[in-house]
Write a protein that binds this DNA or RNA. Structure first.
Length: 566
RNA sequence: GUGUCCAUAGCUCAGUAGGAUAGAGCAAUAGUUUCCUAAACUAUGUGUCGGGGGUUCGAAUCCCUUUGGGCACACCA
């Protein structure tokens, strides 16, 4: 059993369905009554039971009866034999509250134990081939805070989708062609000449890359290859510079992301799309389906048919395709050439204007635009106390991903960026992160893990306690409220992952981890593991060992380490 | 101007496939350790869910409108 919570919800819904049919057959409701879909929800208040049904209220009007009466009629007809349902109550305006037999908790523990380290993974009935493309930073310079946030969210999302039973590919799109690269070449060339002949020798391009990394690259280049390139034709020289710097930057991106615990399955270079002829094929396909046309020497896409105000250029007068055209080819590649069922892109909010026309382009190519999901992340605003730190590659003033990791640590960064949902604005206060790292909730969760490890270590090393085989342990000795609440939370782990996958929201995992840690800490203070009664000690020992495993799994999904000591 | 995201406790934010008395952390106050890690636990208070209207048995959640803020509106990427 992968997901106990899901099974129980199904069980409740099934019982209720039968009771409903029974009531209809007995003529309790008008024959033509429209039956609502049965949803089982978890009430906020514990006093309202383990689960609750609101269907009596939903069908009150059609059934022409007060909700509480309907609820009573239904409960009178429900058959709870061979289920976890202990009893049901009518409450409030007409809720049906479901109270479970506590046996479900112990059965949930059995399931956890038998799945071991795989607990939380589900075998998805409709397994999908999903690509998550994220970060895809321009290799023209170092990565910034936005990339740090996108990286943490994208990687954890990919992991969540995997745990939920999908076939997931992590991909980095490498923009190694186009105007930005041209601009990079100009900037490098200018710095090169300035280094060798003085700053006045050439004017630095206004729209170039002003970051100090450009100069650093060229100084390194000169150290390595000398100064002979001065005599070369400019175009040839720029090409060499670009090649040199792209290689360095891409390597840097890969190592920085590696340190950040992000590893891609595919690095997809933009140039592939030119070399394979897919850019041309794509334009041809769009022309054929009537969504692309020529005007004024350029080729246009009919974006206006997909909600845009005006059409967009695909191929410039100069004959060079736009970024948009190449991006369409790229997405066509994802769906048609490589056959992904679903593609999730993590984009900065500054690209959101691009979404509608990209989906339109997919539709124009005969691809269901629903299969493309774009998650926009609001840009991170960097604060220094109350002062906004402006991030811009143009002015070169920015805090890089590498610096961030160095300052606040990988664990804190990964956890922190998964604390808030993608579409919420995020003020990242450097001062606070630097001076008060202990307040970061990541330590709270990690501490729970370390505490458990410490107990396990002590019992083993000092008391020489070894845990008996699982079937020798009586888990039903766990009767304390703190114990039951902890077990219940553990039982929710697979369901939590499924929900996170369905809502494509990995930040649920940080909140789950914090809740679980909190319940563990409460348990720790309420119940002693290292106690006199052996059977109880074994049961608690097993419980915290399972808790340790779930915390470790949750942290793993988040890309955060689970330390054994702190 | 158009599109889009956001607005919930003093601060940072959960909660939005409509559900019961809107929650947590931080900060504040008072306690908890002869005992498994006090980076912890327990207890105590706070709300015009930005404003207004609508749909509904029921709205923080959906719709409309309005205010304030972020972002984007190129033959840049």
């Amino acid at each position: 059993m992968d997901n106990m919570i899901h099974e129980i919800k199904q069980q409740i819904a099934g019982c209720m369905q039968k009771a409903l049919e029974c009531a209809v057959a007995e003529g309790v409701f008008p024959a033509d009554v429209k039956l609502p879909e049965i949803t089982v929800q978890k009430p906020r208040e514990k006093a309202h039971g383990d689960f609750a049904l609101n269907l009596a209220m939903q069908m009150a009007k059609a059934a022409k009866k007060p909700p509480r009466t309907i609820a009573e009629e239904l409960i009178a007809r429900i058959d709870t034999n061979d289920t976890y349902i202990d009893h049901m109550e009518v409450a409030g305006a007409g809720f049906m509250n479901v109270f479970l037999k506590s046996q479900w908790l112990y059965d949930a523990l059995d399931a956890m134990n038998s799945k071991g380290a795989d607990y939380g993974k589900s075998a998805c009935a409709q397994k999908q081939k999903i690509m998550v493309e994220f970060v895809s930073a321009n290799p023209t310079g170092p990565m910034h805070m936005g990339n740090a946030r996108g990286g943490a969210l994208g990687d954890s999302l990919a992991e969540v989708l995997k745990w939920a039973g999908n076939d997931v590919t992590r991909e980095f799109y490498l923009n190694n062609a186009g105007a930005q690269i041209e601009k990079l070449g100009k900037s490098l060339n200018a710095r090169y000449i300035q280094i060798l002949k003085g700053d006045d020798a050439i004017e630095f391009p206004e729209d170039g890359y002003h970051g100090k990394d450009i100069r650093t690259h060229m100084e390194a280049f000169i150290d390595e290859f000398g100064t002979n390139h001065l005599d070369m034709p400019e175009e040839e020289r720029k090409k060499i510079f670009i090649e040199y710097v792209l290689k360095r930057n891409i390597q840097k991106i890969e190592t920085d992301l590696g340190k950040y615990r992000i590893h891609y399955d595919v690095w997809f270079p933009e140039t592939n799309l030119y070399e394979s002829g897919e850019v041309e094929d794509t334009i041809a396909a769009l022309k054929e389906s009537g969504y692309a046309y020529e005007e004024g020497g350029a080729v246009w896409f009919k974006s206006s048919q997909f909600g845009s105000e005006k059409d967009d250029v695909l191929i410039r007068q100069s004959g060079i395709p736009t970024y948009f055209a190449v991006d369409i080819a790229y997405h066509r590649n994802k769906f048609i050439v490589r056959g992904f069922d679903k593609v999730i892109n993590i984009w900065g909010a500054d690209h959101h204007g691009h979404i509608a026309r990209m989906k339109g382009a997919m539709q124009a190519l005969g691809i269901d635009p629903e299969r493309l999901q774009v998650i926009t992340i609001q840009l991170v605003r960097l604060m220094n106390g109350n002062e906004v730190v402006r991030m811009s590659k143009r002015t070169g003033e920015m805090v890089t991903l590498g610096e961030l990791i160095e300052d606040i640590g990988i664990d804190a960064a990964r956890f922190f960026f998964n604390l808030r949902q993608a579409d919420s604005h995020f003020d990242f206060d450097l001062e606070l992160a630097l001076t008060q790292t202990n307040e970061n909730p990541v330590y709270y969760v990690q501490y729970a893990h370390a505490r458990i490890c410490s107990i396990l270590r002590l019992l083993q090393e000092e008391d020489h306690v070894t845990l008996p085989a699982y079937d020798q342990i009586d888990m039903t000795l766990l009767q304390e409220p703190a114990e039951k609440e902890l077990i219940e939370k553990l039982a929710y782990f697979p369901e939590e992952i499924v929900t996170a996958a369905e809502t494509t929201d990995p930040t649920r995992m940080t909140h789950y981890a914090m809740d679980l840690a909190s319940l563990f800490h409460s348990f720790y203070n309420a119940c002693r593991v290292r106690c006199e009664e052996r059977p109880l000690m074994f049961a608690r020992l097993k419980l915290i060992d399972l808790t340790r495993g779930v915390i470790a799994s949750a942290l793993k999904i988040l890309g955060v380490s689970a330390p054994e000591k702190m």
